[in-house]
């Protein structure tokens, strides 16, 4: 672990911005097997519980005039439903539960990660790569199964001049396979960056003279992170919808 010890006034200035992302076994022990219950497991489980609390318990009254929690659940439902319908098209609605799952998990993992002392599951590439690969595989398998070779029309830009088409096809092919990479790294990178920056500012708070500035900076970054937590979930979901549209309607 790279730690910079800087000779500050009196005490040492020590940054451990990445320590917060460490995965630790929850019940002692020092090896992490595939089944070990870790802090990542705990916060994923909390996200599941929060989602069940909002979407199932919050709507258990099925009130025509909704309570506050039911209103939030309905808002989330309408938000994602409209996104799927607008971006992926009417026939994309069959993917709505899937998109909703992604959105709810990411948004709750992001917001739970903003609690002090918590662990942010979406800051790990292991998590976001799985999410992005799921989307990638869904799009590819569904596209090939539904359209067969016609799905390859996605890479053959029919509106371009014939001479340019092979070059464009290569570019399109590369951009298609880079999608899961950028899709996953964008989410994890944004979340990790925000948390690391907050931690760095927290390290500066050890110096008495600049600690007020540091506290103000942490507050400002926290506000930005709340925004980023939602926007990244939104962006991940809407890009999923955009990719699903390619699977549903290939050809430009």
């Amino acid at each position: 672990m790279a730690t910079e010890a800087q000779g500050g006034e009196g005490g040492g200035l020590v940054f451990h911005p990445m320590d917060q992302f460490k995965i630790k076994p929850l019940f002692g022990g020092d090896t992490i097997e595939w089944y070990t219950v870790t802090n990542a497991t705990l916060w994923m489980a909390l996200a599941v519980l929060a989602i069940i609390g909002l979407m199932v318990l919050g709507t258990s009254r099925r009130a025509t005039i909704p309570s506050r929690i039911q209103s939030i659940a309905e808002l989330a439902y309408g938000f994602v439903y409209k996104m799927v319908e607008d971006v992926a098209g009417k026939d994309g609605v069959k993917f709505f539960p899937y998109v909703m799952t992604l959105f709810m998990f990411i948004v709750f993992a992001n917001f739970l990660g903003l609690l002090p002392m918590s662990f942010t599951t979406t800051s790990h590439f292991a998590v976001t790569v799985v999410l992005a690969l799921l989307v990638f595989l869904t799009v590819t398998i569904y596209g090939v199964a539904k359209h067969g070779t016609h799905f390859l029309g996605l890479f053959w830009v029919a509106s371009a001049p014939l001479a340019l088409r092979p070059i464009l096809a290569i570019i399109e092919l590369i951009s298609y396979f880079v999608r899961p990479v950028s899709h996953s790294i964008r989410l994890a990178g944004n979340v990790m960056a925000g948390h690391a920056v907050i931690k760095v500012f927290a390290g500066f708070a050890a110096i008495a003279t600049i600690s007020p500035v540091s506290v103000v900076a942490i507050t400002a970054m926290y506000g930005l992170e709340v925004l980023v937590a939602f926007i990244q979930a939104y962006v991940f979901t809407i890009l999923t919808c955009v990719y699903l549209k390619d699977a549903l309607h290939p050809g430009h």
Binding site: A40, I51, F105
Partner: peptide
């Protein structure tokens, strides 16, 4: 491996609860 295992359980649970 650990994260992927627990994540898949999480996603499956969320998917079934939601759908």
């Amino acid at each position: 491996g650990n994260q992927i295992f627990w994540l898949s359980i999480t996603l499956v649970v969320i998917y079934f609860v939601l759908s």
